[in-house]
Design a protein around this nucleic acid. Structure first.
Lengths: 182, 182
DNA sequence: GCGTGTATGTAGCGATTGCTACACAGCGCG
DNA sequence: CGCGCTGTGTAGCAATCGCTACATACACGC
């Protein structure tokens, strides 16, 4: 039993790497298995069926994302909300974060359509990001909680617009909203 | 029989209705054809292959969306940005808009992954929405263009958070940002 | 050794995928 | 009339899908 648990844990990193590169949409058992150095037969053996495999994989990816956020915690907190936002949007161009972002829209789409596991993973990832943001808010901010929620809403909007080629639109909007230094 | 000649134009509405209900991810030729009252054979005949079918379908859906926006143009413009934002977010709970929204995340995911046709459709839909928003900005707004971009960024962020169950987070953020009346 | 349970390989199932080959019916044009 | 083009139905292809049946190799308690 402990061995089974270990097997799943061993497989998940390779599976996560595969979906981070190729997406969740076309993820089928045989390519996933090949990426993990095993067979579709074994994936079903360890996870029971594809649905629970995806669910567990999403949970693992959410944990991965959480860890990536923690690793990005800078010792010095930004002085202003503007600087905080600029930093975060800058981090979004990190290639490692890019992979997460592309996968993220798959997860959002799945969550919006109610696919099992997607909603939970998305909620967790957003909760982690919100907590991270609160810790990143400038010292002495009048309303760190509200400010973090405000910034998060703005960040997600910016990322979405950037994903569909309207990054400039979002950037202009942030300038107009006084959220970025001119 | 078959008095109505089938063409791309006659097929697209039924195809759009199908993907609006069932999503783009699992859209395969036979179910699509059945929804349009024809056969996969005919879909390929009229569109050449699935890829161009999807591309044209996305273009048609973008036009549909544009029309839906125009139909939602209210004669009276809101007095403040706050009211403007509140109206728009209220319109997002319209069931007809819900279907668009769920499909929208499929499109964003496809665009983010560079799937052919997705990016173009997404760009067009966002451009249309931006133009619509500019027309909806309060009369006498100091910076309607920048304001529209700002509101759009905020709107998209709110919609995304709502899609993954963090609608409250976004709402609190809008309050904290002074974008909604308390 | 002997049995038992876990982990794994091989092979295959029925369904579905995008797409094609072929036949044929109707139409307009000469 | 005959010829060709357009539209359509039927049947099927090879590939892939999630999943399963069966055999087996290996470790461990008796």
């Amino acid at each position: 039993m402990a061995k089974t648990q270990l097997s799943r844990e061993t497989l998940l990193p390779a599976l996560a790497a595969h979906v981070l590169e190729h997406g969740l949409g076309g993820a089928s058992l045989r390519p996933l298995a090949k990426a993990a150095g095993t067979s579709d037969r074994m994936l079903i053996y360890h996870f029971g069926n594809k649905e629970t495999l995806i669910t567990e994989l999403l949970g693992y990816i959410a944990a991965l994302y959480s860890g990536a956020l923690d690793a990005m915690l800078s010792a010095d907190r930004p002085a202003t909300r503007q600087e905080c936002l600029a930093r975060i949007l800058g981090a979004g161009s990190d290639p490692a974060m890019r992979a997460f972002l592309v996968l993220w829209w798959d997860i959002v789409a799945g969550a919006a359509r109610g696919m099992p596991g997607y909603r939970a993973a998305a909620e967790e990832m957003m909760a982690k990001q919100l907590a991270w943001l609160e810790r990143q808010m400038p010292e002495g901010d009048p309303d760190p909680q509200g400010g973090a929620r405000y910034l998060m809403t703005v960040i997600e909007g910016t990322l979405m617009l950037a994903a569909v080629g309207h990054g400039d639109t979002a950037h202009d909007g942030l300038l107009a909203g006084g959220l970025l230094p001119t």
